[in-house]
Simulated assay, not measured.
Amino acid sequence: MRYKSIVNSFQKLMLIIIIVLVSIAFYLNPVTSGVASLLLGSLLLFTLFREYYDIERNVLFITKGFERKAVNIRDIELINLVKVRDNILVELYGKEQKVVVKPKLTLEFIAHLKKVNPGIQIQNFNLADTMLNTA
């Protein structure tokens, strides 16, 4: 199952900056600067906004831009929920690794991980429950 990532305020700000810079480049010189800026801007936006999490059997695939990382869900020992501004980040702790993800459907994402590995301990679950139920 695929879980989409939250788009944070930094990503939104970068989107605006890239659109403004590409527009300026097109205005100044549409042929060379405009095309180059459009290609570079598209590449930056792709890496900035392409973030999602796939759970297939007992593996969590984390895709960020061109990077794809596989985490064995059975190796996850602890999930810690952290509030950053208005978002909930999910910290996954396992054997010698820590991964931070920000799924839109946080409760469903955690439930899916717990279904695969019932031994996962969860910290600050009440934080997510209260924040997500009041939103």
Rank of each mutant, 00 (worst) to 15 (best):
M1D: 07
Y3D: 04
K4D: 09
I6N: 14
I6Y: 12
I6K: 15
N8D: 12
F10S: 11
Q11M: 11
K12C: 05
K12Q: 08
L13Y: 12
M14P: 00
L15I: 12
I16Q: 01
I18L: 08
I18V: 15
I19R: 00
S23W: 03
S23N: 07
S23T: 10
I24R: 02
A25Q: 11
Y27S: 08
Y27I: 12
L28W: 02
L28F: 09
L28H: 06
L28S: 04
N29H: 12
P30L: 08
P30S: 11
V31S: 08
T32D: 11
T32R: 07
S33P: 00
G34P: 13
V35F: 13
V35H: 02
V35K: 07
S37G: 15
L38Q: 03
L38V: 05
L40A: 15
L40H: 03
L40V: 15
G41R: 02
S42H: 02
L43P: 03
L44A: 13
L45K: 05
L45R: 04
L45G: 06
F46E: 08
F46P: 10
T47H: 07
T47I: 14
F49H: 06
F49M: 04
Y53I: 05
Y53V: 08
Y53Q: 06
D54K: 09
I55Y: 07
R57I: 06
N58F: 04
V59T: 15
L60F: 03
L60Q: 04
L60T: 08
L60P: 07
F61I: 15
I62M: 09
T63C: 02
T63E: 05
F66N: 01
F66V: 11
K69T: 14
N72E: 11
N72G: 05
I73G: 02
D75G: 01
D75L: 10
E77H: 10
E77D: 12
I79T: 02
N80G: 00
V82I: 14
K83L: 09
K83G: 04
V84D: 08
R85A: 11
D86C: 00
D86H: 09
D86Y: 05
L89D: 09
L89N: 13
E91D: 11
E91W: 01
E96D: 15
Q97I: 10
K98A: 08
V99C: 01
V100M: 08
V100F: 06
V100P: 03
K104N: 07
K104H: 01
K104W: 00
L105S: 13
T106H: 00
E108F: 10
E108V: 01
H112C: 11
L113N: 06
K115E: 14
K115D: 09
V116R: 02
P118E: 03
P118L: 00
P118C: 01
G119F: 06
I120L: 05
Q121V: 06
I122C: 04
Q123K: 15
F125E: 14
F125A: 11
F125Y: 13
F125R: 07
N126K: 10
N126G: 09
N126Y: 05
N126L: 10
A128T: 01
A128W: 05
A128C: 03
D129A: 06
T130G: 00
T130Q: 11
L132C: 03
T134E: 10
A135R: 13
